[in-house]
Design a protein around this nucleic acid. Structure first.
Ligand SMILES: [Mn+2]
Ligand SMILES: [Mn+2]
Ligand SMILES: [Zn+2]
Ligand SMILES: [Zn+2]
Lengths: 141, 141
DNA sequence: TTGCTAATGCTAATCATTCTCATTTGCAAT
DNA sequence: ATTGCAAATGAGAATGATTAGCATTAGCAA
């Protein structure tokens, strides 16, 4: 239904691997997934998709505006569904939990910082690295 | 003189490669250098230092608090002299020029964002990606 | 000056990601 | 329903940045 429209409008054929990757993000157990994460989840559910294909599809989806890519501390990048709402991230250094937030003031001051220095802001990445205080953090207690 | 003190207090021997890397940053033609940048510059000035050593020294210096590491868009990370003053960066997507800035309000709101959500802020990374408007940008005009 | 440990410099190994290319598959036009 | 073909896939090789292993060298304390 909706997935097809998304793919079509992006000029992408509706293939099995692409539909599976997309529904993984839409089923939404975890919002932020790396290529490896996606690959493993598909394998686990009996769907055989090559790792190279996962990488390709993720990048195509990003270019099509279906996904957003982030580079949290560490080497591998993660993707999340693009729901139109820009937000930034707080990442727990101990358990890796990711919390999203949006601060209009921060956004505004960034625009100003760029403009004041003769830049045309294109986008930005803001990651806050912190430690959970909550008991949920699996590296606490 | 001063370099020696820095190295000693970090528990690092005063070796030729380390002194050369450090003076490269202190001579300060370019503030932000990748391992490859450092390697090339040393070669160019006739100093033969192995690339592996460059990587090791840069990481040691970061651990010692002499340098700060950044991950701008792209794969390779860059280092800059740690002069105590925290700041964030605006990177030109066309020419790669880097401009530094500090905004107390942004810093403050980040602390608050973390605290409000039960996090103990450790640090953060904020990169603004933009396009130069200035004529200096080598990909303009 | 000696001796020993830390540091260096090769090279080989990692690791994530991309590329190659032979084989399949979606899909539009019969 | 068939056919034709460009686009997509999958397996594995290639890449590029960074790190690890190890034999050799060089600080530095005695
Ligand atoms: Mn998010
Ligand atoms: Mn800087
Ligand atoms: Zn946590
Ligand atoms: Zn520029």
């Amino acid at each position: 239904m909706n997935e097809l429209l998304h793919l079509k409008s992006a000029g992408l054929k509706s293939t099995l691997p692409r539909l599976k990757v997309l529904s993984l993000f839409e089923s939404g157990s975890d919002r932020h997934l790396s290529a490896e994460d996606v690959y493993r989840k598909l394998l686990a559910s009996g769907d055989d998709v090559g790792l190279a294909t996962v990488y390709r599809v993720l990048n195509q989806f990003e270019q099509a505006g279906l996904l957003v890519k982030h580079h949290f501390e560490g080497d591998k990048s993660v993707f999340e569904l693009n729901q139109g709402d820009h937000h930034d991230h707080i990442v727990c250094l101990q358990c890796g939990r990711v919390e999203e937030f949006f601060d209009a003031t921060i956004e505004q001051r960034q625009k100003k910082a760029a403009a004041d220095r003769g830049f045309e802001l294109h986008d930005h990445s803001l990651y806050i690295y912190a430690n959970c205080i909550k008991p949920k953090c699996k590296y606490r207690n």
